[in-house]
Design a protein around this nucleic acid. Structure first.
Lengths: 121, 121
DNA sequence: TTGAAATATTCCCATTAGGGTATATTATCT
DNA sequence: AGATAATATACCCTAATGGGAATATTTCAA
């Protein structure tokens, strides 16, 4: 049985780091293929392949301008990932709270024991 | 050349839908393997395999309690995904702003042309 | 029409993995 | 020690893919 296809959903499309890099670049604005080839140090066929995946999963759109194919990010399609992962956000705040409590406790202990620093001199 | 290993990073680990389901379940609290098997309708060896991936990428931790292995979510490791995808949030707000502007413009035009409604009578 | 530029696609190869089946391992109880 | 329960792992099979190299396709200019 095969892995989920890269074009099955946004999760699988962005699993590949090079494709994340492409999306990062497109976040800066519409670009032609060879721009991505140069910016990312990627082979041209490779770039085209990755772009095809991104196109098929709806994460980018393309329009022809003369010889160039200009690709545009469709960030809406990333919301599925955002919506899924944000559900776990409560856990991060909770842990951050714990760190704060710990830091305050430590600060309190050090305020209560200034002598330790005097001994260190 | 193979795809990035599922254990290379969180992105690749959660690309597989079943593993996302496992994480969803663990978000509700620590669980033994057979609980996940029953809740998700997954085979036991399959569950173990997926859990191994999640463990190796640090998304879950495990402790033995008698015969059971209890798995716990480590949501911190999902922040990498969150941090990456949130960078695209401005695009979503931007499009939402556009919808608002459009709605307000439409509302303004209708307020400026009440006669059309009178003619309609 | 030809040549150049930009890009997409094909072919090849080796690697990875997910389900299924079977088995091994670990923990507990009698 | 043997049996049971829970779980991990091995083996098998098939499918998908990402880079590389080569080629095909599209667009434009001379």
């Amino acid at each position: 049985m095969a892995r989920s296809p890269t074009t099955s959903d946004a999760f699988n499309a962005v699993a590949e780091p090079r494709r994340r890099q492409i999306l990062d670049l497109l976040a800066l604005g519409e670009r032609p293929v060879n721009d991505m080839v140069a910016s990312l140090g990627m082979g041209q066929p490779q770039a085209s392949k990755h772009l095809r995946v991104l196109r098929e999963v709806g994460l980018v759109t393309v329009r022809g301008v003369g010889q160039q194919r200009l690709y545009t990010l469709n960030a809406e399609r990333l919301k599925a990932i955002y919506d899924w992962v944000r559900a776990f956000e409560p856990f991060w705040d909770h842990q951050l709270d714990r760190i704060k409590v710990r830091a305050e406790r430590l600060a309190g202990e050090q305020a209560a024991k200034p002598d330790q620093y005097d001994k260190g001199d």
